[in-house]
Write a protein that binds this DNA or RNA. Structure first.
Lengths: 324, 324
DNA sequence: TTGAAAGCGCTAACAC
DNA sequence: GTGTTAGCGCTTTCAA
């Protein structure tokens, strides 16, 4: 008993294979009665179109690629899930590739993906002009950064960061540290610029430290730098770094938020798993993923798509408070 | 300028298309000189075999599916990465599907994957006999649990748990809590059974609590239960739960490890990101992933494969110490 | 609205 | 060792 094909269905229904094909790919052009009949038979026979055949004939694979720079970064999994779900609803599959933090791997993987997918979502925070070259000719959308030549879907934390700054000022902080992330990271540059701009118009003195790697270890390093700085609050580049900072402070005998307030960014799972829980900026990950898939769908269809900007929102938790 | 095909290469090289095909799929059977020539031309023309065509003709897709129950569980991303890398080396692609914790979705996704992949790796901790039905006919390997009818690759924590128990006993603990995970989880049952067996032969009294969900919140709930139990140490089902327990204890004014020691399981990123860092059992994730891909490869090739059992190892950190 | 027919690019007998 | 010849299952003109 072989798998059902359009031919087996055609024979059973007494129509031609092309009609069966149309009944699935462009149902509106076939006679409703015939269409019903075909669909019923297909159901009965457990027919599933052969994607390879479809791909070969049509040139489309029904699959999109999702390239992530580092799947172990806690920001990633929820994004992957969001992309997946959106793709699933659009009836396309997702080929996930993790570059395990290697830019060289990214290039290789993109080339490899070419011809295997209809389009590509890139979630890689680092700048690399080579990336855009590699993805040339493949409909592509980038997430959480901007990149020349490709539409992007980003989380804009400007408003939320300003709000965070105001919040710290109101709490009475007058000396605040900014612990910068990697200068190659688009998000890190954005966030740093926003915090700097905020500090300008206030009574707050900003102390810039770093840059540090966006990791737990980077945070611990940052904590050491923070200890001598005399700041009573600190912006960490992201939650991972923020958790490292908290850990480092606590070990050095500085209480959070009593001795120093800490704010993160992204609101990853970790932010609620540490004690005290982290005040941070929540990224609309589900919407980011959905928007990326939507945009990519349009790009694949040949439409022109505009950049999408979604707002992060401040989430107050236990890691911020009045200075001692 | 269209993409190069075996035909364009064949013409350029003055050989037949089949020879070109062979030069790639079974290089050893073609004359070395001709092979070289073909490979060189292919390189020059930027030839990439068309996977759809290959799939259609050969019946193989060169893709495996990876079904995960919940990609946001911190255990998952490293496993996904490991599977990816192993697959990459074997020149197969990975179609990742996340069931977002829904068993119904799992079934649907497996069916959907069928015919789209050559084989399937299932990383889903929950019992569901329906799963095995859905995957029928598709070469399948399950990771981190056993499942009737499929070869499995599991992390065995027996030795490490016994060692952990001994460690606690040596530290002077005489009343230890076991906070059980979901009874539907294969790993949870295994771990609980091991801890029970350990306690039998010791001076230690075991207090069983739970079950609780394998989440941070589940851990906080567990902490509340733990407070009244009079235990000086606790086995949490996994790191996530352990972190919740620690958070709950600290909030209730109980110090870790001073007031109560806590041990987790898996050694996810989180375990090093909390303060104190978590004593836990480190799972050999990379090897799990690699073994799964290897085993699946054999299954696809029609070989019989045996279950693989890899050992977890105890990693001592700051969350365990002498009872007060 | 439907059918016939020609591929899509590759693999896999089979014959040479 | 190499070429010839059929397909794999589907889409897509083109005519009817």
């Amino acid at each position: 008993m072989k798998r059902a094909t359009i031919y087996s269905i055609a024979k059973e229904c007494g129509v031609s294979a092309s009609t069966v094909s149309r009944a699935f790919s462009r149902p509106e052009v076939v006679n409703p009665d015939v269409r019903e009949l075909i669909h019923a038979k297909a159901q009965e026979l457990g027919y599933r179109p052969n994607r390879a055949a479809r791909g070969l004939a049509s040139g489309r694979t029904g699959t999109i690629g999702l390239l992530v720079h580092d799947i172990t970064n806690p920001f990633c999994p929820p994004l992957v899930r969001a992309v997946q779900r959106a793709a699933d609803e659009a009836e396309v599959s997702v080929l996930l590739v993790d570059a395990h933090e290697s830019s060289a791997a990214e290039l290789r993987l993109i080339k490899q993906l070419k011809g295997q997918v209809d389009g590509l979502v890139i979630a890689s925070p680092r700048s690399s002009s080579a990336l855009s070259g590699a993805a040339e000719g493949l409909p592509t959308v980038v997430v959480n950064r901007r990149m020349r030549g490709f539409p992007s879907v980003v989380c804009d934390n400007t408003t939320a960061l300003l709000e965070t700054g105001r919040h710290l000022e109101e709490l009475g902080h007058r000396k605040v540290a900014l612990m910068c992330g990697p200068s190659t990271s688009w998000a890190a540059r954005q966030r740093a610029a926003t915090v700097r701009a905020w500090a300008q118009g206030t009574r707050v003195t900003l102390v810039e430290l770093g840059s540090f790697t966006a990791s737990f270890e980077g945070g611990r390093e940052a904590a050491r730098a923070l200890l001598g700085a005399g700041a009573t609050a600190a912006f960490a580049f992201d939650d991972l770094m923020a958790c490292g900072v908290m850990g480092g402070l606590v070990e050095a005998g500085v209480e959070v938020p009593g001795g120093c307030s800490v704010v993160g960014c992204d609101d990853v799972l970790l932010a609620r798993a540490v004690t005290p829980q982290l005040t941070t900026i929540t990224a609309p990950v589900d919407q980011l993923g959905r928007a990326a898939v939507d945009a990519l769908g349009r790009r694949i269809a040949g439409e022109h798509v505009r950049d999408v900007r979604l707002e992060g929102t401040l989430t107050l938790r236990g890691s911020t408070g009045r200075p001692a």
